[in-house]
């Protein structure tokens, strides 16, 4: 086994990596099949869990007559036996057809809600994830290199604070300062200026987590034998940093970043509500409150797809960065 960080520069494209590529292809195929199974399980559990909660999509404070209810149930196919509804749904969901939102009385498709919401949530989420990773890795490495100095302490206090303070407090304070007191940013996130605050708010918590991950893994790496060897062979500090240490200390960050990106892309109820972002995050909560079965299912499955894809991507990346990982 080659020493990590030395042997394989670009494992996917070099001659020596042929067997590796074959393995990777098989691995991805295996993962895709597993993913399908996961999705079927998620659909099944969500479908029956939703049926178990009391109340239905037409429950309202002012009573609707039983005849009206019956007609509405018939219109949306909710009068059929549960098992028929289930297989209908399963079949359609696997083809990405999630049907119409019941709450809108059939005016809007679930795909439309997802598409429209993701335009905003994904934009903000991607930038937030980018900020979280870049800033997180830089600060984390810095804290490790300046281990036990005042810089390390300050960075750690900041990262603890950003995990500890919930996003609704951060957003309320930001909203008050930037929008009400100083009036330099809009309170409603309809254009790029309105995206600044939510992006920063959203990046705080994953950034703090990445700082800690990077710091501790960098500390591990810095104390390992091969770094000492590298120094002994006369490698410069910057070479040790970029070539030997960073690459290895990033592996836990990559593992974390996959699912993190999936969740951050699909928005946050709190951040979207407070900053008035027309994103998808709040739909996860309101659709359940509304018992909007098609929307709940559509969103859950969409998130499942996203998580599965991101986990797969991070696993593959992981093997690229760290050849010690065996795909079998």
């Amino acid at each position: 086994m080659p020493l990590p960080g030395f042997a394989i520069k670009y494992p996917l494209f070099t001659k020596g990596a042929k067997t590796m590529n074959k393995k990777l292809g098989f691995y991805i195929l295996k993962r895709v099949l597993l993913a399908l199974l996961t999705i079927v399980i998620v659909i099944t559990v969500t479908f029956f869990a939703m049926q178990l909660i009391p109340g239905g999509p037409f429950t309202s404070e002012k009573a609707v007559s039983q005849e009206s209810l019956d007609r509405l149930y018939a219109k949306y196919g909710l009068d059929k036996p549960l098992i028929v509804q289930y297989f209908n749904y399963l079949f359609n969901a696997l083809r990405f057809d999630f049907g119409y939102s019941i709450k809108s009385r059939g005016a809007v498709t679930v795909n439309h809600i997802i598409g429209e919401g993701m335009r905003y949530s994904a934009t903000i989420g991607l930038i937030a994830a980018f900020i979280a990773i870049i800033v997180g890795v830089i600060l984390g490495s810095l804290a490790a290199y300046k281990h036990n100095t005042i810089i390390d302490r300050i960075i750690m206090v900041l990262s603890t604070a950003s995990v500890a303070v919930p996003s609704f407090i951060v957003s309320t304070i930001f909203l008050y300062l930037f929008c009400v007191v100083w009036q330099i940013l809009p309170a409603n996130g309809s254009d790029w200026r309105g995206f600044i605050l939510p992006t920063i708010t959203l990046s705080f918590s994953p950034m703090a987590y990445i700082i800690r991950l990077t710091r501790s893994s960098t500390l591990d790496v810095l104390n390992s034998d091969y770094i000492r060897t590298a120094y002994a062979k006369g490698a410069s500090f910057s070479r040790v940093l970029y070539k030997h240490s960073l690459r290895n200390s990033l592996t836990p960050v990559i593992t974390y970043a996959g699912p993190m990106i999936a969740f951050i892309l699909t928005g946050s109820l709190v951040v979207e509500k407070i900053y008035g972002i027309p994103g998808i995050g709040r739909e996860f909560v309101t659709s359940i409150t509304n018992r909007d079965y098609p929307e709940v299912m559509g969103l859950t499955i969409f998130l499942t797809y996203l998580v599965i894809i991101m986990v797969l991507v991070s696993d593959v990346l992981y093997t690229v960065v760290n050849p010690r990982v065996d795909l079998d």
Partner: peptide, 18 residues
């Protein structure tokens, strides 16, 4: 008609004068 489901967001927009 701005559409908002959050009281704090509404108040911030109102106080800002938008």
């Amino acid at each position: 008609f701005a559409l908002s489901d959050d009281d704090d967001n509404q108040l911030a927009n109102y106080k800002k004068g938008d």
